[in-house]
Amino acid sequence: MERGGTNKIILVVIASAIVIVLLSLGQYRSLSSGLNPVREGFYIAERVVTAPFRFAATLWTDYLALVNVRRENKELVRELQRLRFQHMAMQGLEGENERLRAMLDFKSEHGDYQLLPATLLAQDISVIFRTVIIDRGTTHGFAVNMPVVSPLGLVGRVMAVSPHTAQVLLITDPNSAVPAVIEETQVKGIVKGTGTNVLSLEYVRSTELVEVGNMVVSSGLEGRFPKGLRIGRISEVGKDPRKIFVRIMISPSVEMSKLEGIFGVGFRAEDSQ
């Protein structure tokens, strides 16, 4: 009994040591890539399990029910999403000459960026951490830190990638931070995830002009996200004269619980640096 108890303690100490090492290395988020084989295995299993259902669904929708119309419709929907995204990028750069120049810069800098379509494969096991796994990876052109968008706005960025899957950190995740600007007033700040369905815009001084309903877009300052991507509208402004910064809450443009028609934004090699 005594010996058994000692063994248990030794085992728990060893297991704790493993966990502590993992936690101490946890600041290197690239460690998540070490779990790529698991996600790859999951991708294969998911494909195998859902193959009969997908086959039956495809047989019915693409051949029996609507032979050509369905396919044509899919292409049109995809084209519409692509156009909506382009429209959004253009809208964020309309207006004054300076902003028109910025639009020209944007087009010249990212004129040939690729939109890589992807589909949602799985969601995070915890509702607090907001990550999703998509069915596209390095073989389809996805890479770590690649921005992910939907026709409605910014979704997040790729945090780990394997040959056929990618883990996307949504902008609502508490670990997410996106340099942003209020479209109407050009006030800059950092949009942070809260782990809930709202975002917070931080580091905006109390003296700045901020109103409910203002649109917040990516500023492109860090170079990770293209400029002018819609993030959301300001839903709440809490000014406290004793504080330097104002408390701003944002309602995201993209409803993260219904992610459809998402794209990875592929940069040219020189842009990604």
Partner: peptide, 11 residues
Amino acid sequence: AFSGARPGLIP
């Protein structure tokens, strides 16, 4: 592998 949590937190 299915979470955005800091590595080690779930174990």
